[in-house]
Amino acid sequence: MTDDPRTLVSTDWLAKHINDPDLRIVDASWHMPDQNRDARAEYDAAHIPGARFFDIDEISDQRSELPHMAPPPEKFISRMRAMGIGDGHQVIVYDTHGMLSAARVWWTFKLMGKDDVAVLDGGLPKWQAEGREIEDMPPVIRDRHMTVTRRNHLVRDVTQVAEASKLDTPQILDARAAERFAGSVKEPREGLRAGHIPGSKNLPFNRLLHDDGTMKDEAGLRAEFDAAGIDLGRPVITTCGSGITAAVLALGLARIGHDDWSVYDGSWTEWGAFADLPVATGDA
């Protein structure tokens, strides 16, 4: 893979730069509620040296009834300063799955106007499989000022997505598993209808990944987007269950130089809950 500190870097890259004074490592691990795993406790027990823990559910807009919606800028600034992350830092984000929630935090930094942020390819599993160092010590925190410029074009709300559904522009791409997209299985969250946004296409996020959780190369990514029926000359809105794996698709688009994308933050947790929004079933 080609290392790019604005999208994706290898474990070799991180090992080489881990002691850089302006590098900040973030553990963005998150698990579905039904997995009965405690991401914070797992971080406390073992993490890449110097990593800070980013609590996706807490660093969010808790005024919303929807889960882990993007935080207001002032809350993001407050939490990042408390984590010792500020202007001028290169941020590397990883998770314990290999590639899942780390992309969501990458997107959150991008949304807040930060470009020097990348996902660790293969995450903690690859790092540990290579026998690299982990620790259970909390990092030394030094406060640094942070400024934020929210990029509203990187996020879409339900009204904008409903318009895109009717007009077929931008294209809507759903990262959920094919069975959930088709509506042939029950949604994992209670109270949600099964199916997908009318007019949307399906590309399960793991299709962009190798079995070890690393991301495919540019040719492989382009092939997957093409197979899903996406025109890479047009804008794309990515969606999923609750805005987590939609960011994996966004990262994949960024990796191939397609920058006209946005994430539907509410995703199916919002769309599937409202009876007045149309739902399609079956294959795309």
Rank of each mutant, 00 (worst) to 15 (best):
Ala46Ile: 03
Ala177Thr: 06
Met1Pro: 08
Leu251Ala: 09
Asp87Ser: 13
Asp174Leu: 08
Ser60Phe: 05
Gly241Gln: 13
Leu124Asp: 04
Glu218Phe: 01
Val185Phe: 09
Glu187Met: 05
Leu232Arg: 00
Ile59Lys: 00
Ala194Cys: 04
Val263His: 00
Leu120Tyr: 09
Met69Glu: 11
Asp61Val: 09
Gly220His: 05
Ile59Leu: 02
His89Met: 10
Pro139Arg: 02
Val140Thr: 14
Tyr43Pro: 08
His31Asn: 06
Pro5Val: 08
Thr149Phe: 09
Gln90Cys: 05
Lys201Met: 12
Thr245Ser: 10
Glu133Val: 15
Asp260Leu: 01
Asn36Cys: 04
Ile256Asp: 00
Thr245Val: 05
Arg151Glu: 04
His145Phe: 11
Gly88Ile: 09
Arg104Lys: 13
Ala223Glu: 14
Trp261Val: 03
Leu100Met: 15
Gly88Ser: 06
Glu133Cys: 07
Arg207Cys: 08
Leu14Thr: 06
Ile85Arg: 06
Glu74Thr: 14
Ile134Cys: 15
Leu66Lys: 01
His258Gly: 01
Ala182Cys: 09
Asp265Cys: 01
Tyr43Leu: 09
Trp268Glu: 04
Arg150Cys: 02
Gln90Trp: 02
Gly191Pro: 12
Phe76Ile: 02
Trp13Met: 03
Lys75Ser: 02
His196Lys: 03
Gly122Cys: 10
Gly257Thr: 07
Ala129Gly: 13
Ser165Glu: 06
Arg81Cys: 11
Leu221Asn: 01
Ile59Glu: 00
Asp121Ser: 10
Phe225Asn: 01
Trp107Lys: 00
Arg24His: 08
Arg234Lys: 15
Asp95Asn: 13
Trp107Asp: 00
Gly213Ala: 12
Pro138Ala: 13
Asp231Thr: 04
Leu111Ile: 03
His153Glu: 10
Ala41His: 07
Ile48Cys: 08
Trp13Thr: 03
Thr269Ile: 05
Asp259Tyr: 00
Asp265Gln: 01
Asp27Glu: 10
Ile134Met: 12
Asp211Arg: 13
Asp259Leu: 08
Arg189Gly: 11
Ala177Glu: 14
Asn36Asp: 13
Trp127Cys: 06
Ala177Tyr: 04
Asp115Glu: 15
Ala223Val: 02
Leu173Val: 07
Asp12Met: 06
Tyr43Phe: 15
Lys186Arg: 12
Met32Glu: 11
Asp231His: 04
Ala219Ser: 14
Ser78Asp: 15
Leu221Gln: 00
Ala228Glu: 06
Lys75Ile: 04
Ala164Gln: 06
Ala177Ser: 14
Asp57Ala: 11
Asp3Trp: 07
Asp217Gln: 10
Met69Ser: 11
Val119Arg: 01
Ser10Ile: 07
Val263Asn: 05
Ala284Ser: 15
Asp20Met: 02
Asp121Trp: 03
Arg40Asn: 09
His47Thr: 09
Gly252Thr: 03
Lys216Gln: 14
Asp115Asn: 15
Leu8Gly: 02
Asp260Ala: 14
Glu74Trp: 09
Glu224Arg: 13
Val140Leu: 11
Ile256Cys: 03
Ser10Asn: 07
His47Asp: 10
Arg255Ala: 00
Asp20Cys: 02
Gly123Gln: 11
Gly84Glu: 12
Ala103Glu: 10
Trp271Glu: 03
Ile85Lys: 09
Gly243Ile: 01
Ala219Cys: 03
Ala103Thr: 10
Gly243Trp: 00
Leu120Ala: 09
Lys166Ala: 15
Ser200Ile: 08
Arg132Glu: 10
Thr2Ile: 14
Arg52His: 13
Arg234Val: 04
Asp115Arg: 12
